[in-house]
Design a protein around this nucleic acid. Structure first.
Lengths: 127, 127
DNA sequence: TTACATGCAAATGGTTTGCAAACAT
DNA sequence: ATGTTTGCAAACCATTTGCATGTAA
């Protein structure tokens, strides 16, 4: 989803488009799975409470994904579908797009809408 | 893993087996994916700090799994391998054993050691 | 014009920690 | 006997909230 679409979605739901919200979006676009502090570094000028409120807002309308990767929460734009590989040796986080749940329909009587998958292990460099 | 094995593992690593630790283990055995408060309810008599410390200890030696299912952390004995279905309508949490990652080896250059998978959607009753 | 958004500082609440007493081995 | 564990209360710290001010539409 590009910025235009995101802005449209915000306006469409009655949210205002402010410089702070745009700044947060740009910070999110800079890199995937950032911690709050990383985002904060890219958003100097945006108050801490506003950063939290904006992340909540964006998560609520499906624009941002909140991740739990073992250390604190991380955030990323919910553009494409991918999952994370977390290296337990060096902490590096990488992505893989090849989702093993592709094409999985009903699970028992349960209808899946979304899922999260995190894989822990050792990255190539740490092998 | 039965209690005997768990106790053995604790002793083997130099940890003492105390009534509080046994109480926490029994509480964990009563039900899967319990919240801290649920555990607390089954462990009246064990101080809050001790409960936290015990869960840390047991997680550290691989006996307990800590889950992030959307609301706060939850805990369960790490006996068998399974994943969770979280109903977004009623909040019910159920399990499924049929892991779509079974048999997946190296992912790119990454060597998986463990993984967590959570599926969000609607349970049969809420369909 | 006005309802929504921001920033600051204070409040919150889950989790951790310090320390003296109690305990497993 | 002694190093570990416990419970309590205090400390922490990430996140949330109240409110007066600023602002997008």
């Amino acid at each position: 989803m590009e910025f235009e679409a995101i802005i449209g979605r915000m306006r469409g739901r009655g949210y205002k488009v402010t410089p702070q919200r745009l700044a947060v979006l740009e910070a999110l676009a800079a890199e995937r799975h950032q911690s709050l502090d990383e985002l904060r570094g890219r958003c100097s000028g945006v108050g801490l409470a506003t950063l939290y409120r904006t992340l909540d807002l964006l998560t609520g309308i499906g624009v941002v994904r909140r991740l739990e990767l073992g250390d604190g929460p991380r955030y990323e734009l919910a553009e494409d579908h991918h999952h994370h590989l977390i290296c337990e040796s060096c902490g590096e986080i990488s992505e893989f797009e090849d989702c093993p749940l592709d094409g999985v329909g009903r699970i028992g009587g349960f209808s899946p809408r979304a899922h999260s998958l995190e894989v822990y292990g050792r990255c190539e460099g740490c092998r």
